[in-house]
Design a protein around this nucleic acid. Sequence first.
DNA 1: GCATAGTTGAGAAA
DNA 2: TTTCTCAACTATGC
Length: 566
Amino acid sequence: MAAKRTILWFRKGLRVHDNPALVKACEGASAVQPVFVLDPWFIKPERVGANRLRFLLESLTDLDASLRARGSSLLVLHGDPARVIPAALEAWRCDRLCYEFDTEPYAQKRDASVNEAARALGVEVHAPVSHTLWDLDRLLAKCPRGEPPTAYASFLKIAHGVGPVPPVAPDVPSITPLSDGDALSDGKDLVDALRDVVTGSGIPSLERLGYEPIKAGEGFPARGGETEGLARLRKMLARTTYIAEFKKPQTNPTELWTPVLGKEGKVKGAPPANPFEAAKKSSKEPKSTQLAEAFMAPATTALSPYLKFGCVSPRTFWHELRAVLDVELGGKHSKPPESLEGQLLWREFYYLAGYGTPNYDRMAGNRICRQIPWTWDEERLAAWEESRTGFPWIDACMMQLKQEGWMHHLARHAVACFLTRGDLFVHWEAGAAVFDRELVDADWALNNGNWMWLSCSCFFYQYFRVYGPVSFGKKYDKEGAYIRKYLPQLKDMPAKYIYEPWTAPIEVQRKAGCVVGVDYPAPIVDHAVASKECIEKIAAAYNAHKNGTAGSIVAAGKKRKAGDGV
DNA sequence: GCATAGTTGAGAAA
DNA sequence: TTTCTCAACTATGC
């Protein structure tokens, strides 16, 4: 076999461990050039928030360092990948292109276009699967009629039916660069399409990309990248009690990022005012070996952004987790769907649903999505998005999203329910778009799937189970520490009123320095009234669905209980 | 055709 | 603290 000149195209999968595309790229290669293309379609503040972009840039910096340690480096290009990649293949006279397979519609379209151009150039393309536990085409082939299940238990059967999770790819100790006089490091010999290659360090800053810098004390409280992601994974895996008992629905959405120890669980004492600074300090000045192992974490693992960008391989996560569950815990631990492995399987569940469902990210033309007459009320949507619904629990969650690009899973439930079926009856697509922009871990399949879940459009249908915008947060955090952190205007409100400041006597509001209607908005809806109206509207939509699909009107009528009206 | 398990809520009643 | 109800649906097994 002739030696191959190869472009290794990074998109997700920003790692050197368990990277089958990297392994393939180095197989019989005379030279390999790793590239990442900053796609201007994505890189703008209205589409990708500063927190996620910063996480991406940190991940690229870390990847570049890992590649340099292997004799190579990452070249960051700007432009539409459908033009940039074929141009680079041609300019560098490459005959092989390797990248990680991507199941999202945007990526599928982009990759089809690149593949076609590559074929025309006589370039062979390899796109191995490593972003999901299994090859989704194999899972899809096991689905009845090729339609992914909308119930978790059914998914588990299909997943187990395709066999064990494939092993991780071997490590690649060295990568041969394109060093034969091509001078690629600054991209100076590239064709016109590549003229705006970023020079210097190669990886631009947020500001260079037209973003405002993230304020001190704000931002996602952990660094992006494979090195940090694997370190956090392994520190989490050392917490065997935490892993054994992990039940996602029972974790606390109001828990702030606090120092965590490898074996011991939470560090004693009050949480620091600024977790990010505290973490840096504690790693610089270890008071003991135990403290040196401490890392900042909320109630859940916060590994989601590392999985989203592929800084951490889901298969590495899976196999290392299984080793702890089977060997150290001897099988005595929580089980899916609530357990940690259950969380990886939820991810796979949504990825499969997204891969096998046309128009998955919208209501119209979406086979699995209930058709519900949501509104696009811009005032309500803006109030929700800008933390001025007048419900401190909801507004604090949305402020954490804005500042850090992250909030706990159940906080996402609370605000998504509030926007859609619980109170405001605004379209889930509008909420999904906000999450897609702001979340550091925004993941197309998971985000749209969860919005369908929370809006009772698919996967979950008990629309009368509504999260209370007052009761839900209060259940976890009676004193309202979470609200006080993210809504400082309420920091002196007595605990008795902090979830419902409009019920506080005016003298209490004045004393707290927060008068409702002046310093903090009055609630935009009466929850009791709004939720009742929402439930009625969804019931009507469900009835219309029943009467309009499978079986017949007669069959649907037979199921109706007395007193259903009509 | 029917029963059943599963499925990440709140609040009253026991 | 546990149980029940409130306006539901999917998938499976018999």
